[in-house]
Amino acid sequence: MRRHYPQHRVIRPMGHQGNHGRLAASALFLAGLGLLLFNLVASIPFGHAPLHVGRAILERASGETGADNIVTAILLGYRGLDTLGEVTILFTAAAAAGMVLASAGRGQAQGEDAGFIFRTAAWMLFPFLLVVGAYIIIHGHLTPGGGFQGGAILAAAFFTPLLASPASPFNHRVATLVEGFAGLAFIVIGLLGMLGGGQFLTQLFGKGAPGALFSAGSLPVLYLAIGLKVGSELAGLMASVFGGKEKA
């Protein structure tokens, strides 16, 4: 049924096949496109583009959300729905990749164990990465950083040991649980905002003192949910790509 095709066919880059006419044509096309794009972009004055919504947000963000980091105020406040969508895309991609890689008939392509030194170092890094990740997540509304960056570090904490020794078990069940409930928490926080006559994602708690850890209403809570979700998703995604063993 399944035909056998020769494996490892070498693909030569285009230019080396003597196809110079084609190469010249694409160079000409790209040059034209570049010129066009450059003219377009040049019509937006650099450093002086219209600051319409941006100015309003710069003036009001601190008062309206209580966050010192205005980018965070936008990500979780003004454009919080974008962030929910972004987490959803990551979730969807992880689900799709998991589905694609999980289907039957896939050989176990596992890497080799990296040896004692790497294994030990990976586990020694583990607590530090956890602490740094957690710190970056919970300070996201005050300083650069936040749920995505911190989540990526959390994922690295779990994933570095797996890189060092691919045979070590990875608990997909826990990752699925954290991932699902963190995503649910984001939406539930949003829906709770609608209880008092507000809209989806309306702030829940007081804004607090500027610069304090417990400030900016529900933004830090949202970031915590994002951090956990991103962390579990990235770790799960990497584990399914690299074939980490399922731990029941």
């Binding site: 319409h52 309003a56 919080g80």
Partner: peptide, 10 residues
């Protein structure tokens, strides 16, 4: 969304 008036929020 979030109760932020029209052009500022989504």
């Amino acid at each position: 969304m979030g109760g932020f008036a029209a052009p500022l929020g989504i």
